[in-house]
């Protein structure tokens, strides 16, 4: 039994035209037994930056609290919001600090990063449990349904999707992938981050 699969759950993030989306299922279980259908594992870090933490339930909470604390300290000391790239490296180094006794989490970061000119650029990244970063240009996946998410996303995703189309694409990808995974599902949540607002929706899903 792997600690990464003990509680189940999956996260996916996708890039669109001047927007990004991050989505997750809502199940928390102990192996085959479902405990909760409202377990949040995607968290806002700033107004335009979200992090998804699929993996062992206890580490979801521990890491979320840790990142919230460190982002708050960064904001106070630097007197500015953290960049998604900077945050991704912060997550990565936090994980690598525990190289030989890791947190059982494979984080996904999604946000809009501000370039020196002030323009906003979509940013997504995923990591393994010891912090090796994958900066993808299209989509990243993690969790117990990752192989299914790869398959569906590879078939549905296309470049330069507008926010509403990106929402549909990421939702369909997530729902159809988790329906083939016994450890993921039981509802889903989607956040589409655009330059002037974040659209968050909770999706109904199969409950079996």
């Amino acid at each position: 039994m792997s600690a990464l699969e003990y509680n189940g759950g999956s996260v996916i993030a996708m890039v669109g035209k001047d927007c990004v989306a991050i989505a997750s299922d809502l199940r928390l279980g102990t192996q085959a037994l479902g405990i909760s259908s409202n377990f949040q594992r995607v968290f806002p870090m700033t107004d335009r930056l979200y992090v998804g933490l699929p993996g062992l339930g206890t580490d979801v909470t521990t890491l979320y609290e840790r990142f919230r604390y460190r982002v708050n300290m960064y904001t106070i000391k630097e007197e500015r919001e953290i960049n998604p790239e900077t945050f991704a490296h912060m997550v990565s180094s936090t994980l690598y600090q525990h190289r030989f006794g890791p947190y059982f989490i494979e984080p996904v970061v999604a946000g809009l990063s501000k370039s020196p000119t002030g323009a906003l650029k979509p940013f997504i990244a995923a990591m393994d449990l010891i912090g090796c970063i994958n900066f993808a240009k299209d989509f990243v996946v993690a969790g117990t349904a990752s192989s299914k998410l790869y398959g569906v996303a590879e078939g549905l995703w296309e470049p330069d999707l507008e926010p509403e189309d990106l929402f549909e694409t990421i939702s369909q990808t997530l729902l159809n992938a988790v329906d083939r995974d016994a450890f993921s599902g039981w509802g889903a949540v989607v956040h589409v981050i655009t330059k002037d607002r974040v659209i968050s929706r909770t999706l109904k899903a199969r409950m079996d």
Binding site: S147, K148, Y150, G151, E154, L156, Q172, L175, N176, R180
Partner: peptide
């Protein structure tokens, strides 16, 4: 080998699951 990648895509495109 790629059943887990392809089958959920087919569920969506052939059976129109979740649509």
């Amino acid at each position: 080998a790629a059943q887990s990648l392809v089958q959920p895509f087919l569920d969506n495109q052939i059976y129109f699951n979740n649509q």
